[in-house]
Design a protein around this nucleic acid. Structure first.
Length: 342
DNA sequence: CGGCTTTGACCCGCGC
DNA sequence: GCGCGGGTCAAAGCCG
C-alpha cells in the first residue's frame, strides 16, 4: 500500500501494482474479502496455481492449453462453490476473483480484494495488472434451489417481454414496461470485477453504447451505463470508479451476449507468437481487460476512452494477436460463469 | 449522416 | 405516502 498506489500511468490503461488497502464502496465492498497478502487462489481454493504462477505469464496461461485449463479450472472452482455463490440466506451473492499479473513474470490468481501484485515481489518498474471479479445475483445458477428459481423467473420474464414486443408491443412511451403486479424486476445475472486502470471504459472486444450516467452517492465519480450495441443483445454493463481508490474501476456486466465478440469474429486463427516489438504489458492489459467479457455478463468503465479505442488503432498484426486471446477468454467465461459447461 | 455521448427527466424499488 | 437512490429513456448535440 502506501505510495505505490498513487503511481501515475502514462497512458491508456495500466493497472496498479498493489491492491493494498483497496476498498470498494457500496455493496461490492462487503463481498470482497481482504485476503492476507500473498495469499493465492491456491491458498484459498486448494488450487495449484501458485506453483504455476512462478513459471508462466498470464499470456502463457491463456495461450497454452494446459495453462488455460488451469486458469479456467480456477474460475470454475470458484464458481462451483455453493457457499460462495449462492449462500442460502444471504440474498444477492457476490463472488470476487482477483487476478494479478506481473508482466512477463508471474500469474497470480487470488480471491479477495487484498493485496495483489505487490505480493509478487515485483519491482516498482514492473507493470502489474490487477483485476477483481465478482458475480452477483444467482450468477452461479443451479447450485441452489433459490438461485435456480431466480434464474427461471428472469427467463420467464424475458420471454414474456420479448413476446410482448413482438405482438406489436406497447412500446408506447418511456420506461413503461408492463410488469406483473407484485413481481419484482428481475435482473440478469451480474458479474462484477475491479480493475486498476486509468481509463474507465476498458476494451473487451465488444461494442458498447453509453446510455446513461448517474452520480453515485458518496462518490465523486459518476457511474456510467453501457449497453451492447449489437442488436438483440441485451447485455449491459456499469462502470464506475471506486471512491476509495480512484485508480480502481469497477465494472459490472449484466446479461449474456447473444453473439460473438466482434473481435473474435475478425480474428480467427490461433495464437501467433507475439512479435518482439509488442510490449508484453500492453497485451496483458488487454487480456486482463477482457476477462469481464468472459463472463458474458457485462459491464465496464468508460471515460475518456472509447470501448473501441484499441482495436481500430492497433496494427493489423497486433489485432490478430489479440483476437485469439479474446476467443480464449470467451471460452473461459462461459465455464467461468455457468459453472459447468463442457 | 450515422453512431455515439451527454444530460435532464422519468420510472421503480425500497426504507422510513 | 414520501423521499431517496438506482436505473433507463430519449432529445439534443458532437464527431468522424
Amino acid at each position: 500500500m502506501s505510495g505505490e498506489n498513487r503511481e501515475l500511468y502514462h497512458h491508456g490503461h495500466h493497472f496498479l501494482r498493489d491492491r493494498g488497502d483497496l476498498q470498494f464502496h457500496d455493496d461490492l465492498s462487503s463481498f470482497i474479502p481482504q485476503r492476507p497478502s500473498g495469499a493465492t487462489l491456491h491458498d484459498l481454493q486448494g488450487l495449484d496455481l501458485q506453483t504455476a504462477s512462478q513459471f508462466m505469464s498470464f499470456n502463457d496461461c491463456l495461450h497454452g492449453s494446459s495453462d488455460y485449463g488451469l486458469l479456467a479450472k480456477a474460475f470454475d472452482m470458484l464458481y462451483s462453490s455453493p457457499e460462495l455463490f449462492c449462500p442460502r440466506d444471504v440474498g444477492p451473492v457476490k463472488q470476487e476473483l482477483v487476478v494479478d499479473t506481473n508482466i512477463g513474470a508471474n500469474l497470480n490468481v487470488s480471491t479477495g480484494g487484498g493485496g495483489g501484485g505487490g505480493g509478487g515481489g515485483t519491482t516498482p518498474a514492473t507493470p502489474n495488472s490487477s483485476v477483481s471479479l465478482s458475480s452477483t445475483e444467482a450468477a452461479g445458477e443451479e447450485d441452489s434451489g433459490r438461485c435456480k428459481k431466480d434464474q427461471q423467473k428472469v427467463e420467464e420474464e424475458e420471454k414474456q417481454q420479448t413476446k410482448e414486443g413482438e405482438d406489436g408491443g406497447d412500446k408506447s412511451k418511456k420506461v413503461n414496461k408492463p410488469r406483473k403486479k407484485g413481481e419484482k424486476r428481475q435482473r440478469a445475472p451480474r458479474f462484477a470485477f475491479m480493475t486498476r486502470s486509468e481509463v474507465d471504459h476498458l476494451e473487451d472486444g465488444y461494442r458498447w453504447r453509453k446510455y446513461g450516467q448517474k452520480a453515485v452517492k458518496n462518490s465523486p465519480y459518476p457511474r456510467s451505463y453501457y449497453r451492447c450495441t449489437t442488436q438483440k443483445c441485451s447485455v449491459k454493463k456499469r462502470v464506475e470508479r471506486s471512491y476509495q481508490d480512484p485508480t480502481v474501476v469497477i465494472t459490472t456486466y449484466e446479461g449474456q451476449h447473444t453473439h460473438q465478440s466482434p473481435a473474435t469474429i475478425r480474428g480467427s486463427t490461433h495464437m501467433l507468437a507475439p512479435p518482439p516489438t509488442v510490449p508484453t504489458s500492453f497485451r496483458q492489459d488487454l487480456l486482463v481487460h477482457q476477462m469481464p467479457q468472459l463472463n458474458a455478463g457485462s459491464q465496464q468503465v468508460q471515460g475518456d476512452a472509447n470501448p473501441n479505442m484499441y482495436l481500430p488503432t492497433l496494427p493489423a498484426h497486433l489485432q490478430q494477436l489479440q483476437f485469439p486471446d479474446y476467443g480464449l477468454l470467451q471460452d473461459m467465461v462461459p465455464s467461468f460463469i455457468h459453472n459447468k459447461q463442457p
